[in-house]
Nucleic acid binder design. Structure first.
Length: 390
DNA sequence: TCTGGGGTCCTAGGACCC
DNA sequence: TCTGGGGTCCTAGGACCC
């Protein structure tokens, strides 16, 4: 989906199109535009029906933000000031103070996510969910899927999604997921790009390695250290050399990826492995000095995870915590218990034991609670009886 | 006044079992 | 008396993705 979060926001706030805008951070008091308008302009009754009529100068600005949020989306006019994804909002505010700041409204994005995926599945049922704004589709078997190399079906998908949601998307058509993902970037927004095997050399090899889904900042830096900048550079390396420097599995995968080889199927169904909740504090907290505050947040996180498990019908038996210290170092601890659970008090109890295994001299920036080794409720095996004697 | 939240997968060492 | 060879599970950390 093209600029997904921003596009969803423009559907209800079309008056913000073309303006520098940043989405990030949580909901703040000043984000209640309807409430503020009713308080200060009571001559008319403002409701959620009037979102498109809210004057632009009523929207909160980036310069008034206080907190530790980061940018999830920045529109093009904002990016021209040097702000971008993952940047701290406070830092972004210095670069582009006049940008409008909208809170992340994940519920709303999920609604549109479900809507566009329903459209896709109705046309091409072999669809793999890749998060809120992305899917892989195998339309090998879809009637008409091969017409014009897939372009006809891609156009149908775009039109159907737009008619149902008002949102545009970009589609890459290729022999496998690896290339399709790269192809989808070629013609943004609202574009279609068809890449054949024979296009590997002219279209894929000139790209920076970082464009390959699976090569992140660390691997890219290491590759650059060896003078490997483009996919073509990578393809030119012998497979054994890559294995020697990047390990058996990753080295071999790098070689395959550079040559456009990818046999992964489109996976239509999967079970969750873990569920977690975490929160970054407004200020760093100390285990002793801020014990009460920390304890309350800890309990709340356990309740949220338990609520998620219950709502979705899962139980887990690996319970763990995540800490981020003021120096940004991360520690995790987990424990596997005999019986699967979705109970907040049990999770809190086990997670509390985990917490005791971490040195807590430094102040904490983040606390998280995770439950893993999930199975569906009712499918949990009975706990194994411990043999007392043999 | 730096640096979110929710995930998956991989690695590597150690325990433990047969 | 100089020490097997699998295999699985658990734990901690880290890379990567959306």
């Amino acid at each position: 989906m093209d600029a997904f979060y921003a596009s969803v926001e423009w559907l209800r706030y079309p008056q913000l199109k073309g303006l520098p805008m940043v989405i990030g951070g949580g909901r703040r008091r000043e984000d209640d535009l309807i409430g503020r308008l009713n308080a200060e302009r009571p001559e008319r009754a403002w409701t959620a029906e009037h979102l498109a009529e809210i004057p632009v100068d009523w929207f909160p600005l980036l310069k008034d933000y206080v907190g530790r949020g980061v940018i999830t989306t920045a529109t093009y006019p904002a990016r021209q000031f040097g702000v971008g994804s993952a940047m701290g909002l406070m830092k972004a505010a210095k670069l582009c103070p006049q940008a409008i700041l909208l809170p992340v409204d994940f519920d709303e994005y999920r609604r549109f996510s479900r809507a566009f995926k329903t459209v896709v599945r109705d046309i091409a049922p072999v669809m793999e969910d890749r998060g809120v704004d992305e899917v892989y589709i195998d339309f090998t078997e879809v009637p008409g899927g091969q017409r014009e190399g897939g372009r006809v079906l891609a156009r149908l998908l775009q039109k159907s999604i737009f008619d149902a949601t008002g949102l545009t998307c970009s589609i890459g058509v290729a022999p496998n997921k690896l290339i399709a993902k790269m192809a989808s970037e070629f013609n943004k927004p609202n574009g279609i790009s068809i890449v054949h095997e024979t296009d590997l050399q002219p279209l894929i090899w000139p790209l920076p390695c970082r464009k390959i889904n699976g090569i992140g900042p660390k691997a890219d830096e290491k590759l650059q250290g060896h003078g490997i900048r483009t996919v073509g550079d990578l393809a030119a390396r012998e497979r054994p050399w890559l294995v020697q420097h990047f390990g058996k599995a990753y080295g071999a995968w790098l070689h395959d990826a550079a040559w456009g080889r990818d046999e992964r199927p489109v996976v239509t169904e999967s079970e969750p492995v873990s569920m977690s909740r975490e929160t970054t504090f407004d200020r760093d907290l100390h285990a002793v000095h801020d014990r009460a505050e920390l304890g309350a947040v800890f309990t709340q996180l356990c309740e949220q995870v338990a609520g998620d498990l219950q709502r979705k019908g899962y139980v887990g038996k690996t319970i763990g915590i995540k800490l981020r210290f003021d120096d940004f170092k991360i520690a995790t601890r987990d424990t596997t218990v005999a019986e699967h659970t979705q109970d907040a008090r049990r999770i809190r109890q086990v997670a509390g034991q985990c917490l005791k295994r971490v040195p807590l001299e430094r102040r904490l920036r983040l606390l998280g609670v995770r439950v893993g080794s999930l199975v569906k409720v009712g499918e949990a095996p009975p706990p194994e009886a411990l043999p007392l004697f043999e």
